[in-house]
Design a protein around this nucleic acid. Sequence first.
DNA 1: CGCACCACAATTTTT
DNA 2: TTGTGGTGCG
Length: 822
Amino acid sequence: MDKERLIGFRKQIIEKDFARLNAMQFQAVTTVCGPLLILAGAGSGKTTVIVNRIACLMKYGNAYCSNKIYADFTEDAEALMLRYLQGDASVYGEVKGLLCVDPPKPWQILAITFTNKAANELKERLVNMLGEEGNEIWASTFHSACVRILRRESDSIGFSSHFTIYDTDDSKRLIRDCQRQLNIDEKILSQKTVLTEISRAKDSLIGPEEYSTDGPRGFDQKKDYIKRIYTLYQQMLKNADAMDFDDIIVNTVKLLQDNPQALDYYRQRFRYIMVDEYQDTNHAQYVLVSLLAGGHKNICVVGDDDQSIYSFRGANIENILSFEEQFDHAVVIRLEENYRSTGTILDAANAVIANNSERKGKNLWTSNERGEKIELHTCADEAEEGRFVADSIMEKSAAGRPFSDFAVLYRTNAQSNNIERALVRSAIPYRVIGGRRFYERKEIRDAVAYLAVTVNHNDNVRLRRIINEPKRGIGETTMNNVSSIAAYLGESMYSVMARADEYSALSRSAAKLKLFTEMIDSFSARLANGTLAEGFRMIMNESGYAASLSQDEETKEERLENLDELYSTLARYEQENGEEASLEGFLEEIALLSDIDNYDDQLDTVTLMTLHSAKGLEFPVVYLVGMEDGLFPSSKSFDDPRALEEERRLAYVGITRAKELLCLTKASARMQYGKTTANPPSLFLDEVPAALIDDTSPRVSAAFGYRNNRAGGAYGAVYSAAGGSRSYDYGAERFKSSGGFSADSFAPKKTAVQDAFYKPPQKKESPAIVALKAGDTVRHKKFGAGLVLSAAPLGNDVLLEVAFDSCGTKKLMQGMAKLEKL
DNA sequence: CGCACCACAATTTTT
DNA sequence: TTGTGGTGCG
């Protein structure tokens, strides 16, 4: 009937449905046809837009930008629409046909993020909004989406469907093996160089054959070496039925390029594609996205060129800068209203980033209040910097902020040390994200290697890793012999080991080798009998690995606890996946897992992490420490303007993490690599308008140094008495998994039967908090005896002020401090 | 083959 | 300062 009226109604209904969005967000949500670039400034509600855009697609298809109508527009229909418009949701089922134009099935939507955490959050929000249908949307990382595709299409790419994924550490080992096999000295060419060079080549979709040996001045010997290593490396991966992270993308691209049916299938399948953090994509990922979007052309990318901080890893900022040239008829929408930070913080961020030239240009604004000035504090050295931060946190926490409000961000992981030390002294609960990650720990990698070899006997890198761990008297030479024989016969190392007695070169260790493969065989065979977690326990016990860990008194507790953690992760995985659970599946999941994925914002602790890890997060109070030239910006960026711009983007990321308060600190002198250096103030400090800064540094010229104004400097004086305690383990203690994987039960009795060894972890009860009041005397593990001056309840804990005989008055959280009442 | 000792290097790292 | 990896001896 009246087409215009129907379309008008439709638009009104959609507008009402998304009325919570601002104008730009609304546009971004409803522009669903064709290429779209959403430039989303920090804190501009990017995730909200992504979630709502998908919801909009599911509910209305492309109704907002289409004139199609699939139903008769009767008077009844008009009445229904009116009712719906007035808020009567019960008629949705009846009006749906009128509102919706070609809605996609949930599995036709592909939403790509960079971290598992982001993917899971997205999924969760989609399920909240759309119900169970949300679960069927492909919301995943580049890597897991590609793995899914590759496993399905494994026949056509020459891998098995259960190929192994090698992470950076595995890759490094393999590179080392290749280098040794080719007799290329690591002094001439470091593994690191080779690895980044190969990775860079893969990012650019350059295979070993095409890899050029030409440098700027013709033939380049190093490049020739790299080409040879690259070739062998790929061969070895293939033999091990393994792919590294880059291969996962590269092989998917290859599959789509070489296999028209596959390309066609996935183009049909993914009608709508969204890519988050587009500024971080590399060339291979760009090609992948273009291939997939080549059919429907419904490609929406979201990103912020000002937050591109991963170019050192191959991210290509050009992808986002020239999106409009790469995708015809692309629409660009800018989200510039910031909902996160105070005006002051935002002004600072804008002022800093304005110094960059390689950018799309964008000006964030906010209607939030101005807020407080940005605090700048100069400290004498890094220890004082830590104390300043700890003290400031203590003060604000006493005023009622939970510890989870605070984040301390730094340029390099090494900087966490001083901060940790100071936080421990004040008994402030904290956790460090990144640094040495859980899955990078030796015992975890070993344990995982056992599982990997049990599942895939051809996993040579992992096989070599555990063959002599614990000691089985099988060394490098033996394994090299095995490897040569295997290469010569074209068989796997594992099968050569299983028949070791047939080869004279292996005669001396044949028995040991056979014993090992028989053990692994028996693991594989028995794995089907019980739960995976039990299987893990069995493997750890019978391989002797768990027992070997308990040999070292120094480290056994922590390491066994880490095994506990892995056991729990496996048990949890099993619980979540039920029938579907498999060891292969578990290994894949953890191969694609990162540290930030485990970041739990529910815990009431201060968070310490690098600026890089902080991207995507926000905190009410942010400390940006080490604002010094040479540290941040890093000295390595001094002679490269592009690198310096990336550092500046990093500063921008850091500043925009803060919601309410931002505090910048620097130290006049800092111990780096065992030497004390004096770094000038960071270039970026000058770029923040002075009017936004409140400088609380001690009022003596920093040039005179720490010694000269010790007496006058507030912190120098207060803290000079606080020396002493070197150990700083109890702050972290709280975050170790507790109890269960009892160290004692791992006593090295190798013959005893398994069961006694590896007990699944159990929760330890937290010690009851004894009521303390002013006047009580207490004993502290490190500080000794002291008198309680005050006790004030704070959250679930009690803030104590204690005068210690040995080191003066300290503020402590009772729950953290393990005090003994005397 | 295993262990002890010394040399050396050392941003950032979503997968 | 920290951690890793190579070398050389028993």
